[in-house]
Amino acid sequence: MLYQMNFGDLLPYWQVLARGLLFTVVLTLVSTVAGIFVGTAGAWARTFGPKWAGTCVSIYVELIRNTPFIVQLFFIFFGLPAIGVKMGEAEAAFLAMTINLGAYSTEIIRAGIQAVPYGHLEAGSSLAMSRWEIFRHIVLKQAFMKVYPALSSQIVIVMLGSAVVSQISAEDLTYAANYIQSRNFRAFEVYLVVTGIYLALAIALRALLRGIARAVFPKG
């Protein structure tokens, strides 16, 4: 017997999907901004910061990069309350995403910083710029220009990875899919549609990031 697809059963739930989509979008945007902030601080510590800070950041980066996101999420949401750090599922999702992207972007931005020629730093200090001014205006700007493509694809990867936060009941797009299929038993149709939404989201996010690059970085 051949299975009859039925997408009509999804229509009554479009609001659930829309709410989930909104959560995924906000989650991605907020943790992207926060994660890149963490990554910039981490990259600074590893290149210009004191040695002990660099070592701490290296340990953080390696720990995050070599464990699955879902385990990090479970650790934060289930593990931390056991030692007294309690938070809701949305907060845990934001925190886990930020920590995760922070580690990856530390590595990416650090690579960009190390690619800045040393002469540029000397030129900066000969213009009597302070260490902070050199970092902010000379190093960081060039570093971001160099690693922007790598950073963009990492942001898309993190957005797709955010589907996992449904496992701690954070009400994202995947959570909406799970909810709907538990109501109308149209699992395959729901997941097919939601997969399509994620694909569209990935394509839109990439276009957005390209647009930002064109607006922020001068040609060349």
Binding site: M1, Y3, V156, L160, G161, S162, A163, V164, S166, T174, A177, A187, F188, Y191, L192, V194, T195, Y198, L199, A202, I203
Partner: peptide, 20 residues
């Protein structure tokens, strides 16, 4: 590459079942 691995797992899990 443009869809979550989690969704792919769900689709294979529920999709292959549809074939009986």
């Amino acid at each position: 590459q443009g869809t979550p691995l989690l969704m792919q797992l769900f689709l294979f899990f529920f999709g292959v079942a549809l074939l009986g």
